[in-house]
Design a protein around this nucleic acid. Structure first.
Lengths: 199, 199
DNA sequence: ATTCAATATGAGGACTCCCTCATGTTTCTT
DNA sequence: AAGAAACATGAGGGAGTCCTCATATTGAAT
């Protein structure tokens, strides 16, 4: 395992490179998955040489970490506005919101799901894995404050798995069938949350 | 891609080898997943040489196909007795049955989930992917004959994803927490099926 | 204009993986 | 017992991967 530190970009050129590499990496991972994505392909698609890539990222894992951080931050920005008004939403509204955000994210950041499911490298930042679960748990506790942390996390775990479960079906389906799939999974989550968050 | 046909076992020795290799392959895949499982490791763990392995299987994909076939047949044997009496079961009984069978299977055939999720090679036998979904769809239609094929398949798809969603949580959890997780996912599926299979 | 840090390049080292094949051993048949 | 067929072996070919490093180029500061 390589251990050397890498360059931190100091010029505009460097910052652009880093951004280009990350964007290319996300595209490649979205297409072929983390394991089969190669560093050479990422570099080529970024219009950079393999050496340039390694100026900023010491190894493949570092790229994954950077992408997860970036996606995690973007998620944060999406959920922050909801945290306040969480108490006022109905279950149906809550479920609609959850799926709207996640579907929009899956379409605009198609590397998100493959990245989060890549079993590798979670030992290095286990926190990343739980950020989404914590957002959901916070929403549920806002709606029903008498939930214990534990209970909220359990429900959030199930919620995360429901959304994850929809994603491969959604991705494989023809656009015309997608609405139907979304309806089905919204019903799934609504039925469950109605039991669990009942007044 | 290699294309040569391989030996079909003719002696007891050969049949034992094939069984040993398949068992070892399943163990390796269960531990590290399909992509990272190596042919050398499978051979070593089967107590065979790499050459012996390739006497019977032309490539890695062939091993996966054989395992999927085997697991599929075992599944068939589990669901067959239910197909008849499907009409008489309550939703709760149905859900209990589904999870009991799947959990038992996951514990005794830990390679099942990684294999079914391996995106590779499904082009060669797309039928394998749908066997479980078809079993579920048959159960649902036994219970509610007025369901269209399409509707039954949709519900079966969701059901498969729910069970799949439980499996990583179940596998990662300490045994003491597993009962809790199972309860949660049974509630998830029960709530949903109650909506969809209502009289 | 000069200098030096920042950035870029890509051939190739070190490794791993899948799979072949020439050769050796065991089992069956007669 | 002898010959043939089935089975076993493992070194190594070929391909692909991650990553390094010596060298070259660009940009900024003086």
């Amino acid at each position: 395992m390589s251990k050397a530190k890498r360059r931190v970009p100091q010029q505009d050129r460097g910052e652009r490179r880093v951004a280009e590499v990350l964007e290319a990496a996300a595209a490649v991972i979205a297409e072929v998955g983390y394991e089969t994505a190669t560093m050479t392909e990422m570099a080529e698609r970024a219009g950079a040489s393999i050496g340039a890539l390694y100026q900023y990222f010491p190894n493949k894992e570092a790229i994954v970490r950077a992408l997860r951080q970036q996606f995690g931050d973007e998620m944060e920005a999406r959920w922050a506005p909801l945290a306040n008004q969480g108490a006022t939403l109905t279950i149906k509204q809550l479920v609609d919101r959850i799926f709207d955000v996640m579907i929009d994210f899956m379409e605009n950041r198609p590397a998100y799901v493959p990245l989060m499911n890549a079993p590798k490298n979670y030992k290095r930042d286990p926190a990343a894995r739980n950020r989404l679960r914590e957002h959901f748990a916070a929403l549920f506790r806002a709606k029903r404050p008498e939930l214990t942390q534990e209970a909220a996390f359990r429900i959030a775990n199930v919620t995360v798995q429901v959304v994850k479960g929809m994603s491969p079906l959604y991705a494989d389906a023809r656009p015309a069938e997608r609405e139907q799939i979304v309806r089905e999974f919204k019903l799934l989550l609504t039925s469950y949350l109605s039991s669990r968050l009942r007044a």
